[in-house]
Design a protein around this nucleic acid. Sequence first.
RNA 1: GGAGAGAUGGUCGAGUUGGUUUAAGGCACCGGACUUGAAAUCCGGCGUAGAUGCGAAUCUACCGUGAGUUCGAAUCUCACUCUCUCCGCCA
Length: 430
Amino acid sequence: MLDVNLIRKDPDMVRDLLSRKGFEVDFSEYLEKDRARRDLIFRTEQLKAEKNKVSALVPVLRKGGRDVSDTLARMRQVADDIRDGEAQMAALDAWIRDFLDALPNLPDPSLPAGGKENNRVVRVFGTAPVFDFPPLHHVDLAESLGVVDYPRGARLGGSGHWVYRRDGARLEWALLNYFIEAHLADGYEFMLPPHLLTWACGYTAGQFPKFRDDVYQLRSDDTPDGFTHFILPTAETALVNLHRDEILDEEVLPLRYCAYTPCYRKEAGSYRSEERGMIRGHQFNKIEMFQYVRPEDADAALEELVGKAERLVQGLGLHHRVSRLAAGDCSAAMRRTYDIEVWIPSMNDFKEVSSASDAGDYQARRGNIRFRRKETGKPEFVHTLNASGLATSRIFPAILECNQDASGRVRIPEVLRKWMGGQEFLARPS
RNA sequence: GGAGAGAUGGUCGAGUUGGUUUAAGGCACCGGACUUGAAAUCCGGCGUAGAUGCGAAUCUACCGUGAGUUCGAAUCUCACUCUCUCCGCCA
């Protein structure tokens, strides 16, 4: 949700910023309706004030033995007028709400306009591994080592699903432990939220109503619109709703959270043949980091989140890069985003393992999440930031492919071994 | 799934035969007085959002949510959500 006062004050500036995201909008009808709405509020409230005044007078007149039937008749008319006004208001409000709900967040003014092609790489770590033998694709490695079962995953869940098995399951679990431990050391609270969320959660996150069809929904004949819950596409959707409709004390900020959940995504139409294996599945594991901060602390928080995600990848010894996304490549709710991408040899390309974003007050406005500033005593919207820390579904293939040797063995990164019985290599099935 | 009870500002809590209750009062918190300082005491302040206005201020809405009855609803009616207790089922 954008600040309506900003749109009233400088609609051209807002329009120009949105167009950098590739979102074209004309505010003239909105501004007209906004004006009409305020006029209507003024008229209706005056009627209500009269109603309240006269209603309080009725018992006094009665006590004085006066006939009030004329007064009641007149008030019946006023009550009708109020009802009319409120009906008009409801129609205007609905139009305005739909309009505002559809507006994405403003991009940070410092971002270049346009899409992916204008992303800028800001840091690169390591170099691509060089092999003195023909390296295998992670799907082939995983199958020969028996660590991922793709055919049976598809049997269970359809395409885009797999089963982690044996040391694959342990490696996956070790990665999650490695991430969580790092966050705990940095003072983040670890939590396990529900995976089935209500409509309001999707709205606050900025995913609904526009992107409601991108998530898996649970439907029922018992509800008016058939919708009951959706399955979270990322733990961010849960974490951003934790403090919905709250006014936080300034002293508790920044709130630093991390959560583990699987992420469930339809990924309709996004499959590409080179994304064979676990690069893009309908379910993947992720530790999400999330912060609620004061507006002035958002810059530092974003750098902290990116830094944390980078260190995790570095700890695994994987070649990766950090990019600052152009306005159009940031998702709708975000004002700026860094992507951290890890090198996948078989794709000869980098794939995203973490996205660190600053939502500004966009989500906080939708979820009515505020804090009371000590200095002024007034509530203000918090700023919310999130970053994966990390998603495993690209890390796992990267480890397999980058750590393979000529004999088809895969070396386990040092930092993970304590969760894998001290093993140096993934065991072959006997 | 069934039965019962409940939901009131940051918190506790009164108000539920509809109309001086303008949502009382306590606690917490903030400011001031007193005090060497603190405590205690006293005084004052103290929810959120919106509209009009340069401002002072005035008005409106909000008592779980949404409808309804009425000149007038925290209070009456209906639906829903959540919490608690008990029963049933269950990993």
